[in-house]
Nucleic acid binder design. Structure first.
Lengths: 240, 240
DNA sequence: GGCAAGTAAATGTCTGACAATTGGAAAGTG
DNA sequence: CACTTTCCAATTGTCAGACATTTACTTGCC
């Protein structure tokens, strides 16, 4: 691990970077214990608060975890898919909400990515995942459902579709794309007719996946994208 | 912003979460100044080091930036695509390297995602992006290129392909998928014949995109995936 | 052998101090 | 008045020392 620090960044930033690089490069491996705070103070020749701030930065990125007590300390964390999902969703959501990404762009990206899962999902989806989709479709058709709950169920449906590909890397990459759209989707008010059309498409998608018909699933996803775009357009037009 | 803290997590974690939620929820908007460290100390009734550790956590996630001096302080940061790319790449790389994701899974995900860009890229790629692809192909065919440099050029080629879709959200989502594969690809040693086959496919892909032929681009991407998988398989077989 | 108390190591938190940076106010100057 | 220089106050960055809390391990007792 490098210990020479001479950039014009904060000391805590430099130390965090040095440790992070060591983890990425592999000289610190999973579950390995980092030197104690006191040792790091000596090594980098800085005060303890500086070291602690560096460690907190790494903890915020799920790169390390800390444990109190005698055999405690900071340990290189095995990044779990679960943690990576959450990070991915937070980042994507903020990225979209802070950069006035237009609905068309986000929607296009999302459906392009989802369609890439469809063929795999048609091959591999489990009965469990099909059941989840059906359950969400059923939830969506219940009367008195708020728009927000409708959107949440929509997300759950699409996640089941993506998970159907049985590829954790794919699920991870798509988590952000699907979830980050939710705030944008929430800006739409759905009439009962809108919902009916969406639900019908969802059913057709589930049918296609059940029949292992990748082409049909793909076609219905395109229809759904078109439908979503149309809804969004009129919603944003009405807003003005 | 909530100020009541009673979980069994660290104080600094709780404070960071409270502020993060305020940013996500929208009660703190971009470029808005947070209260000074001293004010946050009072508000949450904790010491300054605790507040500072919380702020460092947020800074590590690019949620805030800090500025010293009279009109300084912590400001809500507009998450840029650039920052989001980097985060995404770091997370994806570590996720893959720490979880013994097999090459097949990662490769499948990567090419599935890339194929979702191909049709858009065929429509929209700029001359500049085509030129980048050609340049990388040329670099790849130079003799004496190390395997590592070959892989790096491969990544650059694929990024140009993805950027050709002219959808920043898509580019962002794919950055992780493409870059995170590089360490895995680096484990392969390429013979000259291997390289020639890959370069030929790259050329065909560039041709297809230039001709706006989405179907051909797609087909060649499938070939490239097959080729990559084959190479990886023999590489890992030889290793044993 | 098993249980309880104590001990040491480590992180978590607080306090107070000083350094470094920076914007703006005040003072001086033509 | 306009312009420059000086100074000041606010704020973050860093350090040192203290104490609290947690936890594994050791020691001693039964």
């Amino acid at each position: 691990m490098k210990t020479d620090l001479n950039e014009n960044e904060d000391l805590s930033t430099q130390i965090a970077e040095a440790i992070r690089d060591a983890i990425i490069e592999g000289s610190l491996i999973v579950d390995q214990r980092l030197p104690s705070e006191a040792e790091l103070c000596e090594k980098f020749d800085v005060g303890r608060s500086t070291v602690r701030e560096a460690l907190k930065r790494l903890a915020a990125q799920n790169l390390i975890r800390t444990q109190r007590g005698a055999a405690g300390g900071a340990f290189v964390n095995r990044m779990s898919f679960e943690e990576a999902y959450d990070q991915q969703i937070t980042t994507s959501t903020l990225l979209l909400s802070m950069n006035r990404v237009d609905f068309e762009t986000a929607c296009e990206a999302r459906y392009a990515l989802e369609r890439s899962c469809a063929p795999l999902s048609a091959q591999r989806r489990t009965p469990d995942q099909l059941a989840t989709m059906r359950a969400e479709i059923h939830r969506q058709s219940q009367p008195g459902l708020t728009d927000e709950a409708f959107c949440a169920s929509d997300v759950a449906f699409h996640r089941a579709l993506v998970d159907g590909a049985r590829n954790p890397v794919l699920s991870y990459q798509l988590a952000g794309a699907v979830e980050a759209m939710q705030p944008l989707m929430n800006m739409i008010t759905y009439t009962q007719r809108d919902r009916d059309r969406i639900i019908a498409l969802h059913s057709q998608i589930a049918d296609a996946l059940e029949a292992k018909d990748a082409a049909a699933a793909n076609a219905r996803l395109i229809d759904l994208e078109t439908e979503t775009l149309k809804l969004a357009k009129s919603a944003f037009a009405a807003r003005r």
